[in-house]
Design a binder for these strands. Structure first.
Lengths: 107, 107
DNA sequence: CGTGTAAGGAATTCTGACACG
DNA sequence: CGTGTAAGGAATTCTGACACG
């Protein structure tokens, strides 16, 4: 069933049909790192149904006035939120949270 | 979920990848009425995941030595079997089973 | 920033035919 | 019958750019 959802097999024309977005919009959202279609050896893009769902979601947010940048940020937060406490500790030790901490300390 | 399975959105290249059949084979099975992809205004074929499953099934039967004709017949029987008694009665009244009956009567 | 469009080229797909068996 | 292949053309997709705002 959902083995299909992740398969990168749809040409951009089918995605246009399914999302009601233009090719330009679809390629632009990719440029802004909101989706990542697969490329064939010839350079043709192939999308998954999951990409289609993401695009429909992106489309709604854009209509609500959100920027592609903020949409991208929201994505990152969702991903970040799922990391465990131990992972957070590891990242702190790795110095990746230092900047944030320093800014907080500076009052 | 399974709304995707019926959507005719896959280009033949993706079907080749998913079924491991050649374009020639896929088009030939269509010629033998085993599958019916959709055609875009430009003439390009678009398949569904359901078509892909059918093709994998067809492929297995061919390997078992079955002919495209017999595979087509099996399909028809499956379809016929699912009609209800009332539908059979309706078809009899409509004269669609007359030929079959006449042949039986002729002993 | 987000999207439309014209431009030219490259990749993809299509059909009809010949071949083999 | 089922499948491979070379051939030529048509449809599809791609990139980079200019435009508007």
């Amino acid at each position: 069933m959902s083995i299909y959802k992740e398969k990168k097999v749809l040409p951009i024309s089918s995605v246009v049909e399914l999302t009601e977005l233009s090719e330009r919009q679809i390629r632009y959202y990719e440029e802004r790192n909101l989706i990542s279609p697969l490329r064939t050896s010839g350079g043709t893009r192939k999308y998954s149904f999951n990409d289609v769902e993401k695009l429909i979601d992106i489309s709604k947010k854009i209509k609500e006035g959100k920027s592609t940048f903020s949409i991208r940020q929201d994505e990152k937060i969702k991903t970040t939120r799922t990391i465990s406490d131990s992972e957070i500790r590891r990242q702190m030790l790795a110095g990746q949270l230092n900047v944030t901490f320093r800014n907080h300390m500076k009052k």
